[in-house]
Design a protein around this nucleic acid. Structure first.
Length: 254
DNA sequence: ATGGCTTGAGTGTCAAGA
């Protein structure tokens, strides 16, 4: 079983990339972020033709999350419990016995800004809810764009990014809180190349120079971690014409 | 140099991303 996450930065623009990637990577569940569309613009038919049932929690212009699955999803949840939020950032469903939580965590804009405070509040609400969710679902995966580089090795230039949004200590503490709940970073279960990243700025030839951050993650519960056999970042779609600025992350389970 | 691209909205250019 393969679970994946990908911030597509507009599903309308990236649909050809997504369809090509589904055909080559063959994931069983895919969590998408930044679909940037309402349901009316969501490509349900094209994805069904590719073999995927789709759930979408979208809005106009911004945010929007989707969950694609090759088998029937159940127990669908479309909002973060205990958090008043006009922004569509969460979608959870159970697929083949695994609780899959797709999250587009807030960017935070700049440390100290209103958006940064919103980010920390959102992360706090997520951790509180996860505590209960982990009790209900021993096999659980939290997949998405976390907008957090958990450690300095996840940053191309740690000195330049020190204390900046995506790397600040309160954000990293929020990430560690997920780990303290028992979740495991699937990517770090295995030896990985140095300077492995999932996002590169569109500007300044950042991808060509590998000036990136690792901010998209798959965290798994202990029961699911025991089944995990591989986790990798697939940079191939980032090399295509008009790419998303994020690369997909995929984890394989027995 | 708070820039540099890309997207959606919408026809001017701006907000937002990270």
């Amino acid at each position: 079983m393969k679970l994946a996450t990908w911030n597509v930065n507009s599903l309308k623009v990236r649909l050809p990339h997504l369809l090509g990637w589904l055909a080559s990577a063959q994931p069983d569940v895919v969590c998408l972020q930044e679909t940037k569309t309402e349901d009316a613009g969501f490509p349900f038919a094209e994805l069904a033709a590719a073999g995927y049932q789709a759930l979408h929690n979208g809005q106009k212009t911004y945010n929007g999350v989707a969950l694609l699955a090759r088998s029937e999803p159940s127990e669908v949840l479309r909002a973060l419990p205990g958090f008043e939020d006009g922004q569509k950032r969460l979608l959870a469903a159970t697929v083949a016995g695994v609780r899959c939580i797709c999250a587009y965590m807030p960017n935070g804009q700049a440390v100290g800004s209103e958006k940064y405070a919103y980010k920390l509040a959102w992360l706090d609400a997520l951790a509180r809810w996860l505590q209960d969710e982990l009790k209900r679902f021993p096999q659980l995966a939290l997949l998405g764009d976390f907008n957090i580089a958990p450690e300095d090795r996840d940053v191309h230039d740690p000195q330049a990014w020190q204390g900046q949004v995506l790397c600040s200590e309160p954000e990293r503490a929020a990430f560690r809180r997920f780990i303290d709940l028992g979740l495991v970073d699937a990517f770090r279960l295995f030896p990985q190349p140095e300077k492995s990243f999932t996002w590169w700025d569109y500007r300044m030839m950042a991808f060509r120079r590998n000036h990136g951050l690792r901010i998209d993650h798959i965290l798994v519960s202990p029961r699911l971690a025991a089944r995990c056999r591989a986790c990798l970042i697939d940079v191939a779609p980032r090399k295509l014409e008009r790419p998303s600025d994020h690369a997909p992350v995929i984890a394989e389970f027995v």
